[in-house]
Design a binder for these strands. Sequence first.
DNA 1: CAGTGTCAAGGTGGA
DNA 2: TCCACCTTGACACTG
Length: 302
Amino acid sequence: MRIGYPCINRTIGCKANRTFRLKSYSEERLVTTVQDNLDCLKAMLRFNAANSILFLRIASDLIPFASHPINRVDWEKCFSTEFCQIGDLVRNFGMRISMHPDQFVVINSPDTDVFNRSVAELVYHARVLDAMGLDMTAKIQLHVGGVYRDRKQSMERFTQRFFSLPEVVRRRLAIENDDRLYTFRDCLTISSETGVPVVLDVFHHQVNGSGDTVKEVLEMVGSTWGDEHGPPMVDYSLQKPGGRRGSHAASLDVQVFARFLGETRPYDFDIMLEIKDKEESALRAVRLAREDERFFEGRSKG
DNA sequence: CAGTGTCAAGGTGGA
DNA sequence: TCCACCTTGACACTG
């Protein structure tokens, strides 16, 4: 089991997701921003390695305006050295990487313009992971999309569209249950037709699920992850106590997390902690896991 | 320099 | 048909 956090580290004093306004666009601004982001990403990976945090989500803003027509910079070529170095770090430390495109990437939209823009954005994500030379265990996780007043048809459209995606995207895609529209069962249905592995979001499942226990769900979801995909990915977060529905808790409740780990034995998976204080909570989770080695022993894929 | 309106991109649901 | 809301963070303008 690898433990991780998404996109931002508040300890190391730099950000790998810096961007700027479209109005301020210039090639120079882009190049310096990307350079800073990649430098910071290396710093994050070193910090993580030193702290046994072996799972990281890379922000989609790593290359600002990557799929926007305004961007004519050949960033792959320009930063090939940096990408290789980052890939080496990931491999040498036995780490895992994921990415999660923003909400406007919608494969099953009836609007073909939306679809085409989504493809461009997905290709960008795939090119980043390819440039780092990462294997297919590095995933791009995506929600199923909209319902458009016809769930069945919209799910079928997802599947159709999936098969028209470029191979570089298809092989890295994973789908995740969301908090309102598509449950993990919907994802399993799509998975059975596309072969796409299913990322389980534990919080979304609590809010928008069927009442199956986490362990039952993990067993079903785990079987969608073949050897080439690596261990299942799980997103973990908690409702902010007293906060609006869907808002994430400020920091990890270690007691609750320990119970979760206990409940999910013997399944092995990599877990992304979507908690406000980011690496803080990841550090506490790692500490907890160290104190109780049982959480790592005897786990297997679903 | 602190406060805050707005940001490339979508979808849903209520008025 | 229009608009607020979803969630999150940060840019960049305002005073």
